[in-house]
């Protein structure tokens, strides 16, 4: 029984390690004192300051739309990529596509960012496009790594899928395109949703790649946060973090409850 106590205490330590810093950040976001670690009374002034800070709000809005655009373009391309990899068993370049679709997952951010920037600069001097860098180049860069993540999620769902449903629809005379939209797509839609959300989150979170490929006037939220943190303590970042954590917690809780209810219904 001693072993169980050991595992239990190590697990408790692990969770304390994961959540300690986050909890202290949330608590101190309600601290009246500018010194982040000296408690001097409850206050919501940092939230007020956050909502008056147009730089942060503009950056958040920009990041949101970049994430929506990148995740959506990547969803289409990643789904096509998964269909090609799972359904077309043999074609020339299949290994190359599989490699291209998974290598961005493990490519260090600094290399992805640098290589895309150098590409954009070379293209601009060769063909004049893209003229300068900004939102467009960030969306291209984010789409590229999001394709890889979406492909992982959708590909594994698609390869679990029972082919007989699609075949039955074919036998009943549906065209392949119709089968894809009426049968395949609805069945893999949970994977599409989670793939899109994953891509959205990763795009929203990216600092390094965006720093390389952004231009003047297109600072994303992580870029603004990073420069604020570098300058020193800023309590309004605590307030922002608390808001983000609250949104994510509600979302993940809802998703988990939904999933638990669905699996409970299945087993009953």
């Amino acid at each position: 029984m001693r072993r169980n106590w050991l595992i239990l205490s190590l697990t408790v330590f692990g969770f304390a390690f994961l959540y300690g810093p986050i909890l202290s950040l949330i608590i101190f976001s309600f601290n009246d004192n500018r010194l982040v670690t000296v408690w001097s009374g409850f206050s919501t002034r940092w939230y007020a300051e956050l909502f008056a800070d147009t730089q942060i709000l503009d950056a958040a809005w920009l990041s949101f739309w970049i994430a929506v655009a990148s995740a959506s373009i990547a969803l289409v391309l990643g789904t096509l990529c998964s269909v090609a990899l799972v359904r077309f068993r043999r074609f020339r370049g299949r290994t190359a596509l599989a490699g291209m679709a998974s290598a961005p997952l493990v490519m260090p951010d600094v290399i992805t960012g640098l290589s895309l920037l150098l590409l954009f600069v070379s293209m601009e001097s060769l063909i004049g496009w893209p003229a300068g860098r900004g939102v467009g180049t960030i969306i291209i860069a984010h789409t590229t790594f999001c394709i890889a993540y979406i492909t992982v999620v959708v590909r594994s769902r698609l390869s679990d899928l029972d082919l007989s449903l699609e075949e039955a629809a074919m036998d009943l005379g549906a065209t392949p395109v119709r089968v894809f939209f009426d049968i395949t797509l609805p069945i893999i839609s949970p994977a599409l949703v989670s793939g899109w959300l994953l891509a959205f989150t990763l795009s929203l979170d990216d600092l390094v790649i965006a720093s390389f490929v952004s231009g003047p006037g297109s600072s994303t939220l992580p870029m603004v946060i990073y420069s604020k943190i570098r300058l020193g303590v800023s309590p309004d970042v605590n307030a922002l973090a608390t808001i983000i954590i609250a949104i994510v917690t509600v979302g993940v809780l809802a998703a988990t409850l939904l999933q638990m209810r669905r699996s409970a219904r299945k087993s009953s």
Binding site: Y19, S24, V237, T249, V252
Partner: peptide
Amino acid sequence: MLVILPFWTSFLLRVYALSGFMR
């Protein structure tokens, strides 16, 4: 869920939270 939750929150903000912890 408790293990996955931090993964969905911002990486940068978690590093920042940790720096406040160890300051």
